[in-house]
Simulated assay, not measured.
Amino acid sequence: MPKLSQEPSENQKEYLSTERELSSIPRVASNNKEPDVWEYPSPQQFYNALERKGMGVEEEDVEIMVQIHNFLNEGAWEEVLKWEKLQAHKCDMIKLTRLQGRPNDLSPKARILGWFK
């Protein structure tokens, strides 16, 4: 995972926290220094990523966006575990090896619903 900057953006007007939360999602650590679970981005890192992608956002909205992001990821992991229980006889412990965001790729359902707007 790339090291995300904790430095304020040059366009930024307000201070954003640099505190990161640990998730409950186990990960395959590449070295002994990394935690055994994924770390969520800090509000500052989240803001910087949105700025880098050209998605303008107000600083005061970032804290709640990070909370929603983390909540949804935890819920999605719980759903993965439910599905993986069906395969419990094949493996002992499930760990997430990578995360990949695809914000510009619409699912078939989203594409169809978009036609009706």
Score class of each variant (00 low, 15 high):
Gln45Ile: 01
Lys53Met: 09
Ile64Gln: 08
Lys90Glu: 07
Tyr47His: 00
Glu39Pro: 03
Gln87Gly: 04
Met55Arg: 15
Ile68His: 02
Phe71Cys: 09
Met65Cys: 07
Glu63Met: 13
Arg102Gln: 12
Ala76Phe: 14
Val57Thr: 14
Ile64Tyr: 13
Asn32Arg: 15
Met55His: 13
Cys91Ser: 06
Arg52Gly: 05
Met65Asp: 03
Glu51Ser: 01
Lys85Gly: 11
Trp38Gln: 01
Met55Asp: 12
Asn70Cys: 14
Asp61Arg: 11
Phe71Leu: 13
Glu59Lys: 07
Asn31Lys: 12
Gln67Pro: 01
Asn32Cys: 15
Val66Phe: 04
Phe71Asn: 06
Asn70Trp: 06
Gly54Leu: 09
Leu86Asp: 08
Met93Thr: 12
Lys90Tyr: 05
Ala29Leu: 06
Leu81Ile: 07
Gln100Ser: 12
Asn73Tyr: 09
Gln100Thr: 11
Trp38Arg: 01
Gln100Ala: 13
Glu78Lys: 04
Ser30Met: 15
Phe71Met: 15
Lys82Glu: 02
Asn70Gln: 09
Met55Gln: 15
Glu51Trp: 08
Leu86Ser: 04
Ile64Ser: 12
Leu81Gly: 06
Val37His: 01
Ile94Gly: 03
Gly56Val: 05
Gln44Gly: 00
Glu79Asp: 12
Ala49Ile: 11
Pro35His: 11
Lys85Glu: 11
Glu78Ile: 07
Gly56Asn: 05
Asn32Pro: 14
Asn70Ile: 05
Gln67Asp: 02
Val80Trp: 05
Met65Arg: 04
Glu78Tyr: 05
Lys90Ile: 01
Glu74Cys: 02
Arg52Asp: 10
Leu81Thr: 01
Pro35Cys: 04
Asp92Phe: 07
Glu34Arg: 12
Thr97Gly: 06
Glu60Pro: 11
Ala76Trp: 10
His69Ile: 07
Thr97Trp: 00
Asp92Thr: 08
His69Leu: 10
Glu58Asp: 13
His69Gly: 03
Gly56Met: 10
Leu81Cys: 07
Lys82Asp: 07
Phe71Glu: 11
Gly101Asp: 03
Asp92Trp: 12
Glu59Ala: 10
Lys95Arg: 11
Met65Ala: 03
Gln44Glu: 04
Gly75Ser: 06
Leu96Ile: 14
Tyr40Gly: 00
Val66Gln: 00
Ala29Ser: 04
Asn48Met: 00
Met93Gly: 08
Ala76Leu: 12
Leu96Ser: 12
Gly75Glu: 08
Arg98Gly: 13
Asp61Gln: 09
Glu84Pro: 04
Asn73Cys: 08
Asn32Lys: 15
Leu86Ala: 10
Asp61Lys: 13
Met93Arg: 09
Ile68Glu: 09
Trp83Cys: 14
Cys91Tyr: 10
Pro43Ile: 02
Leu72His: 11
Ala88Val: 10
Leu50Ile: 01
Tyr40Trp: 02
Leu50Cys: 01
Phe71Gly: 09
Pro43Thr: 03
Glu34Ser: 05
Gly54Arg: 09
Glu79Tyr: 03
Val57Ser: 14
Leu81Phe: 08
Trp38Met: 04
Cys91Lys: 10
Gln67Asn: 12
Val28Pro: 02
Ala76Gln: 10
